[in-house]
Design a binder for these strands. Structure first.
Lengths: 253, 253
DNA sequence: CCCGTTCGTGCCCGTTCATGCCCGAACCCG
DNA sequence: CGGGTTCGGGCATGAACGGGCACGAACGGG
């Protein structure tokens, strides 16, 4: 195994477990502790983990965002299936907008290496993930960055989306239903989502079934705006029918 | 088999398997390891794989910054000292623009947790690093993202910098001297740097001494634009005097 | 058809890199 | 404040690297 591969794995382990320690890693990878120390130092230098005595802690989990870790694991399986299904909606070539959110991030991570796309996003983690993808022309939407979601919002973001037109938008919502439409807890973020919806010819909503019926503070659209909903099999047939009655296609991954 | 065919095959193998190694490829294609190395170097230059000791990994498989980690090793010590010295130039509170570049990234990494600042940057890695910094209000400058530097450039970025005014800019340059001014290899990036310089009341140039006297394709300013140069002790006294003669303060960390 | 040029490849050899081992220093916990 | 643990710099080693050179095949202008 190559050093960078090992470091990548270590990073994964750190993020999954919230921490790693030198000796277990040495055992795990069948190398000496010195090598692990070197790896951790490299990751530390790259700003990905914070070195502590005996091990390391991934950055971003250091003092807050217990929320992110939790959400990452919540419904992981459903999200993976949804992301996989979403790949089928990627155009062979063209322009795609990717909203912020863990499910959309999985779609981004699953984009095949040989894909040739133009991608627009206001999500920092998604941009970071796609930045070295050889086939992707990446356009970053700027703005004030919200700590919680690491997504850009406000004037710059709104204006940027106002100036473009994309083939497909993959958008996430914290709550959706035929009655309440699409909602999210933050007003600024809702405004950006609304702008993104307006910028796309085709709107694909990615939301696991637990989001159905939920209603949050800020509304950014109705189900009518959505051409396709990709969700999991947890969405009841009646709810599915209700959504489809509004003209939205539904895929239950 | 022709070289490009072989390289295409290698790329396929790399993407399928997630990794390739020099010796097996040499065996597989019945050529020597040198030839494989040349192929991998070509693929590396094309940005399709990332070269590692003993083999290569397809780009996109690692989500941490490859060339960043690599370039970290070059003059790492000087860069650390420069970054440390740069911290003294951070205002207690106010607005700071951070240019892209490894040295500036070190400054970003070294910003104390209790700092309370507004930071503007068009660098993806720097933004990612600061996104979860509790005291920092982060503003991301959007634009087309260059693969090599992971920095946003072009119209959106230029306009964003045209609309703001910051207290301090920390800027990097690939080459600097009293005669040739500040230069960098990429035109688009030079334009963004120029816009950033114009947006800042005080310009701090971070450049290790190896950059002095170098001249690259695109010029984005002269040393007159720079209020303070932070470099390392490798800058000769005469060169230092020449820079200072132009009215630029010099700190040799 | 000839011959100088270019390109791909192989071989050689000094250099660099990743890793492991060692040991004094720093650190953590009780 | 003491004992055990961890750290990190220095050194050694074997593998990988890469620049330089040479050879042969393909190329291309005359």
């Amino acid at each position: 195994m190559y050093a960078p591969e090992r470091q990548q794995q270590i990073l994964r382990l750190a993020r999954d477990g919230g921490r790693v320690d030198v000796l277990s890693l040495a055992e795990e990878f069948q190398v000496t502790a010195e090598t692990i120390r070197r790896d951790l130092k490299a990751l530390d230098r790259a700003g990905l983990v914070r070195r502590v005595h005996g091990g390391a802690i991934p950055v971003g989990r250091l003092d807050f965002e217990p929320d992110l870790a939790e959400r990452e694991s919540t419904a992981a399986d459903e999200k993976d299936r949804i992301a996989k299904a979403a790949l089928a909606e990627l155009p062979a070539e063209g322009t795609v907008i990717l909203d912020a959110g863990t499910t959309v991030a999985r779609v981004a991570a699953a984009i095949p290496l040989e894909a040739s796309l133009t991608v627009v996003t206001h999500s920092l983690p998604i941009a970071a993930r796609l930045a070295d993808h050889p086939g992707i022309q990446l356009h970053l939407v700027g703005g004030r960055v919200r700590h919680r979601t690491r997504a850009a919002v406000d004037a710059w973001a709104l204006r940027a989306y106002g100036e473009i037109r994309a083939d497909v938008l993959f958008v996430a919502a914290n709550g959706f239903s035929a009655g309440h439409g699409l909602t999210t807890p933050d007003l600024a973020e809702a405004a950006v989502k609304r702008a993104a919806v307006a910028a796309a010819r085709r709107v694909v909503l990615l939301a696991d079934s637990s989001k159905h019926g939920q209603e949050h503070f800020a509304r950014f659209g109705s189900l009518d705006d959505v051409d396709l909903l990709i969700t999991d099999s947890g969405l009841s047939p009646e709810d599915t029918a209700a959504v489809e009655a509004g003209g939205t296609e539904v895929v239950r991954a």
